[in-house]
Design a protein around this nucleic acid. Structure first.
Lengths: 347, 347
DNA sequence: ATTAGCACTCACTCTAAACGAGTGCTAATA
DNA sequence: TATTAGCACTCGTTTAGAGTGAGTGCTAAT
């Protein structure tokens, strides 16, 4: 990053970013002089602007237009200039209310979170569910549906429920399944599902004789436990808000971004990156910094959430690069902390 | 409906509709003369057009433009003129392949269906899941999670699985829950969930003494079984295809229709109407015929699907009024029949 | 009844001119 | 030496007007 700017240059950059975020119009020197109290004339502002442009922090869409921030400019703003806005009482209450409303399973918590994120930010809210394989197992039950069909229900401590249907050749009574479930539960409670898989496999080896009748079932259970990444749940809300932004007033742009958003695979990938990238706080990815072509005129503000103090999923806001970062950061931050708390209490 | 048209008038109408569906441009008399072999001159075509306009079947966007079909015109076309297109071998295979791929639960069948509908139609595919309350119960199990938390799993014959978490004050062991599950299952297997609710309630009355310990649980089970309408599952795919249509090239129109599509409540309502409206075949709702304001420049092609020969849900295609109805009808028809068949075989 | 021909309409396109927001540079100023 | 006022210049946008052409409706001839 270019060394720190002089105070005055910072002030001008800040003014440009803030004004542009609101108006979405290139901002000129006279406008700045009038609307902000910078204490310098438009001519001086022009000189400063020339400097900032040389540093690549702002640019002109065309010769006789005002300046707009570049991605690098936003980055500087986010890193050094913005004041984290505190949420209003109303906004905080809005978040708290959302979770008050008899929400209890993780699934619903996450669904509600993406909703609340989009509501507060007026942008697109997104939440990625934990990879269930990493979650600690609370219970595993087998339910006989027909002579050939068994339902396996897995519940994690976080409250994630997974259903798998298993087809077997041998008819097993519910009583046998109950015994088997109890047996397995003893071994795997508190273990991650990934581990549980191994334990079942080992058990299958060791107790071959007793398990014999079950071996087919056990094998199939093991293969069902692994959930491919692409099926990982993603909650998306408020995507239509994107259309309100003037930068997305053209059908082709809308098409592009919507296709990306609803191509769940890409979005899951993106959110997954956030999971590893961001430390504990809020992570901001601006425009071109984004690895995905179709997202290059979007910014992401994300944070991770934890279960049992282990990072499990990510949540965030997607919007145009021109975005009130200060506000977004505080919304994401507050929400992440809130559901971290909630998930700690949940079981 | 206006009485039947003369053969020649029909031919002209048909030509107009077909041409407009492809080009999305108002079609003039000379164009018709050249591209269709109607055997009459443009002047005569103009006369016919004047008649059709008087009947409200076509209209001019402005004085010196060609004609475009009105909703009434499309309606006449759909009712009397269009030839149902047979699907190509490729298309049929596409549908069959989709269901070959180890899909077994209803949930996945429906998800796949909306996907395949959008893929073949290049429009938006939509499927509404059965209201679980109407479905026949195959199994109900209770799983103890913690001392205060019980998971209720309900499975219907169609393969629909529902999870509810119940909070109770009294700690009940898994063994007790197993017994209770077995007891209840005996009574309610094969009964609709709506009925099952009543049966549990009655049982609760009758066996008050034995059930006593369970009464809290039973009461809570009953209240959980009812699923509010808005939670009814809806599968939507290919909504971004809408943007490709020239009539949706303006951001505000896109916004409007997307908001409706993702406001699940409205869409569920719409699909619900289709369930009652359409008889056995394919139902077409054109533009203004649609009760919902925001859908008035869209058409719907829908059909219902059955489980145990009872209409359970609906599936269909959403697109602009200018839509190749013949193709759409055959896609919807074939798909509906296909999954009807599939659902009959499934259990 | 059909058709050829013609006058008329009106959205769209193209061009040129006027406009104005904004810049960069220079000379004057504190 | 840093700042500012002033001015010439740039270039996207707006506006008005002429021209174009697809298409119509009407009328007279076939």
């Amino acid at each position: 990053m270019t060394g720190k700017l002089s105070d005055r240059n910072q002030e001008v950059l800040q003014a440009i970013v803030q004004h542009y975020i609101v108006t979405a119009e290139p901002v000129g020197s006279r406008t700045l002089e009038k609307t902000f109290n910078l204490g310098i004339s438009s001519a001086t502002i022009r000189n400063v602007m020339a400097d900032l442009e040389e540093l690549g922090l702002i640019e002109q869409p065309h010769t006789s237009a005002g300046r707009i921030p570049t991605d690098k400019g936003y980055r500087y703003y986010v890193d050094y200039l913005m004041m984290i806005q505190r949420l209003t009482v109303d906004e905080k209450e809005c978040i708290q209310d959302e979770y008050q409303a008899k929400i209890n399973e993780l699934d619903r918590v996450l669904r509600g979170t993406s909703k609340i994120l989009s509501l507060l930010s007026k942008q697109t809210g997104v939440v990625i569910a934990p990879n269930i394989v990493d979650s600690r197992c609370q219970n595993l039950q087998l339910i006989r549906l027909t002579s050939k069909k068994i339902l396996m229900v897995t519940v994690t401590y976080a409250g994630l429920v997974k259903n798998n249907i298993i087809y077997i050749d041998k008819d097993l009574s519910q009583e046998i399944l109950n015994d088997f479930s109890r047996e397995i539960n003893k071994k795997i409670i508190g273990v991650s599902l990934g581990e549980a898989k191994k334990i079942i496999a080992k058990e299958l080896q060791r107790k071959k004789r007793e398990f014999l009748a079950m071996s087919e079932l056990a094998r199939k259970m093991i293969s069902e436990i692994s959930l491919p990444l692409e099926e990982r749940q993603l909650f998306l809300d408020g995507s239509t808000n994107i259309i309100d932004n003037p930068e997305f007033h053209y059908a082709d742009k809308i098409k592009k971004i919507f296709t990306t958003l609803y191509e769940k695979k890409t979005l899951i990938d993106i959110m997954n990156n956030c999971l590893t990238d961001s430390g504990n706080g809020v992570n901001v990815v601006i425009g071109e910094e984004n690895p995905y072509e179709t997202m290059k005129n979007c910014s992401l503000v994300t944070a991770i959430y934890k279960i049992d103090d282990k990072p499990m999923g990510a949540l965030g806001i997607i919007g145009p690069t021109r975005m009130p970062y200060d506000k977004m950061v505080s919304i994401v931050d507050f929400t992440a902390k809130f559901i971290n708390n909630l998930l700690r209490k949940m079981p």
